[in-house]
């Protein structure tokens, strides 16, 4: 490859990346901008790009109007519970569906997959009645406990796809050394699929963090509400306090962004498989 062609490729690469990221940052920029404006400024035409004056009050108001600290804690409880459950149970299940051979495995997996195909709108009520008969409405159980039972087929399926790409010889080497499935799972598969596990961790975090419908339906007491419900409270029946809504969204989004910035490093660091495959 000639150096000039190589340079052109780099230029093109950066051009695409820069234009693309600008396009993607735009909605976020708009969110930041609007969070520091009052209502009149937000809708001014042609639009203002920089707030003038900066309305910092928008960031104080969410805390004055609602118990945001309490909501934060509640959300954290649900998120941590769901994360633990999902990571534990989906990795184990995915291992079984990808690296163990048992009668009816693929059929069972196909049946599990169907759980994503029926729209939530029609399963909502039967599920709700189920939790109610256990007396668990207005508790976090309906939001957390399912994570311990499989942690969502999406996650199992994703991990299964990754586990299946890992070479079989790895398992066999362990068996020859007298190890068992549990050793393979913890010593080989989990470390090698770290990026995939992190991906489902990230997704689980974000889904739970932003989930609105679940907490809304299952929680009745305001003291148990989550951040996503709090956000909705700024959209009143008659008017929306857009500036405050945007500021509150920003406050809620920030931890998620921070998490991603930390997390994405692991996608490039990677683990050299080369040595094992040889």
């Amino acid at each position: 490859m000639t150096t000039s062609a190589f340079r052109w490729q780099r230029v093109l690469l950066y051009a695409v990346l820069i234009i693309g990221s600008l396009l993607c940052l735009f909605p976020f920029y708009w969110l930041v901008r609007s969070s520091m404006m009052d209502l009149a400024q937000i809708f001014e035409m042609p639009p203002k790009w920089i707030p003038e004056p900066f309305v910092w009050r928008n960031f104080i108001e969410p805390f004055e109007q609602l118990p945001f600290g309490r909501y934060f804690l509640n959300t954290l409880i649900i998120v941590v519970g769901t994360l633990i459950g999902t990571l534990l149970s989906s990795t184990i299940a995915a291992y079984s569906f990808s690296r163990m051979k048992w009668v009816g495995r693929d059929k069972v997996f196909a049946i599990l997959l169907t759980s994503m195909m029926l729209p939530f709108a029609v399963t909502l009520i039967p599920t709700f009645i189920g939790w109610q008969s256990l007396g668990l409405i207005n508790s976090y159980a309906p939001l957390i406990v399912p994570a311990f039972f499989g942690g969502g087929v999406f996650n199992i399926f994703l991990l299964r796809q990754f586990y299946m790409t890992l070479p079989r010889e790895l398992d066999e080497a362990v068996f020859v050394d007298g190890g068992n499935h549990f050793t393979i799972f913890t010593r080989i598969i989990l470390p090698l699929s770290r990026s995939a596990v992190l991906v489902i961790g990230l997704f689980t975090f974000l889904n739970t963090w932003n989930d609105f419908m679940g907490p809304l339906v299952y929680l009745n007491d305001e003291s148990k509400f989550t951040l996503a419900i709090g956000l909705q409270q700024f959209q009143g029946m008659y008017t929306a306090q857009w500036g405050v809504l945007m500021a509150a969204s920003l406050i809620i989004v920030l931890p998620a962004i921070l998490l991603f910035v930390i997390f994405q490093r692991y996608l490039i660091e990677g683990i050299a498989l080369t040595g094992i495959k040889g």
Binding site: G81, G85, L88, S89, I92, L134, G135, L136, I137, N138, S139, Y140, A141, I144, V145, F148, F149, N180, F182
Partner: peptide, 26 residues
């Protein structure tokens, strides 16, 4: 057997459910 971990997971899940249940119904 390392099935323990599995059982432990199940038990803790049930426990969480029960705890949450007790606190809500009064």
């Amino acid at each position: 057997m390392r099935v323990k971990l599995l059982l432990w997971t199940l038990c803790s899940a049930l426990l969480i459910g029960l705890l949450a249940g007790c606190s809500s119904d009064n």
